[in-house]
Design a protein around this nucleic acid. Sequence first.
DNA 1: TGTACATCAGTGAACGCGCGTTCACTGATGTAC
DNA 2: TGTACATCAGTGAACGCGCGTTCACTGATGTAC
Lengths: 219, 219
Amino acid sequence: MSRIRPQVELFEKNKPRQARAKRTYDNILLAAAELLVEVGVERISTNLIAEHAGITVPALYRYFPNKYAVLYALGAALMDLQNQIFESWQERHFSAGGAGALMENIEELLLETHRATRNQVGGHEITQALRAVQPLQELRQQSHALIGQRFCEVAAHALGREPDEEMTIHATITVDTFYSLVELALNDGPIPAEGLLRHGGRMIQLYWQDVIEQAGSPV
Amino acid sequence: MSRIRPQVELFEKNKPRQARAKRTYDNILLAAAELLVEVGVERISTNLIAEHAGITVPALYRYFPNKYAVLYALGAALMDLQNQIFESWQERHFSAGGAGALMENIEELLLETHRATRNQVGGHEITQALRAVQPLQELRQQSHALIGQRFCEVAAHALGREPDEEMTIHATITVDTFYSLVELALNDGPIPAEGLLRHGGRMIQLYWQDVIEQAGSPV
DNA sequence: TGTACATCAGTGAACGCGCGTTCACTGATGTAC
DNA sequence: TGTACATCAGTGAACGCGCGTTCACTGATGTAC
């Protein structure tokens, strides 16, 4: 059942050193993001990206070994962005009111993550690609694992327990549901994103209230 | 921001009429499912599918206009399966105990859906492709919309209310979270699927308990 | 029951195309003196 | 400040390959009489 890993090189080759090169590099990423929106992951190619970025293909190969490396860079940037949003949210509220304050402000984090991803060119498409394209999946998993671990530690500490397997389950569900809600809200369907995120945030809150009650110790 | 629809023909051409043809047809779908596992959605091609199915490429083109139509058929079959599981679950419990019984048995539906998808060859990969590959997205959306509508109607009726926008939000979140949990459990990570689905089911239950309490009317 | 015929199913060969990738090269930028 | 040189950045041209797709064809299956 486990997939054969195709061993694709994902890391960048030459780093841009001059200002001109930096512009080219950024153009490549922007063009790739735009093409992700226009044609989708299945149709994207190095040829298309280079053409769209206004350079020739060998110029792209100067910085990236293949198209997956370009997508990987895009995905990594998005995951970094989301991680940063989480970090600053956590610091802001945890220092002010501990674990309880975090839970009260889940909706805020949902809204901020949603807004930031929506404002990123191709943010939604990159998010989707991170789920489906094999060489990118680890990026998403790493990011979610990191955030999940934070959740787990904070929650375990607040409850005066060890971060055991059950706490890991709670954290995993929370993080996964969180980002699934953001993804759901990114679909421009008939339902406004705010409503989805408000009620979705409430669902996560209720879940943790229950965890606390089951544990029988207040925050 | 909206993607340019590439207008891909997705429907099958000739239906198999003879037993031999039916076998060929099934082999194509099975080969495609296996390749989805082996090489992923980005690398799959009609050539590869035909070779894997033990036929020549024109034989594949007899039944499908392109590779997306093959994936579409796979996706449609999976959505049908999940819909059927939902239908029979709903009939079973709703007739026995109304809306309350449905909520009490969410975990059962999670487990059944998870098991069925896992047992389907390439079930996980098809699920992922349904999110990311543009021509397949509507399949997932349609299926979820259908199930969401059922949820919405049942819930509104149980609460003695109209299926208004808020109820639609509740139903949409429920269905999306539900299938995200199934997808999460399909990842063969360190956490056993059962634990994720049990606690995930509990989260959805708590969410609806809250909806009922807020509405101020018992089920 | 046999056979001629119609339809269904699958093949071999060929095509043009865009893909990924590499090469030797020209041009741009930075810097040592 | 000027210029020679080193390094960085990007180009034009070419390649082999697998892709999607189509064609006229052969072989298999079903059926009318």
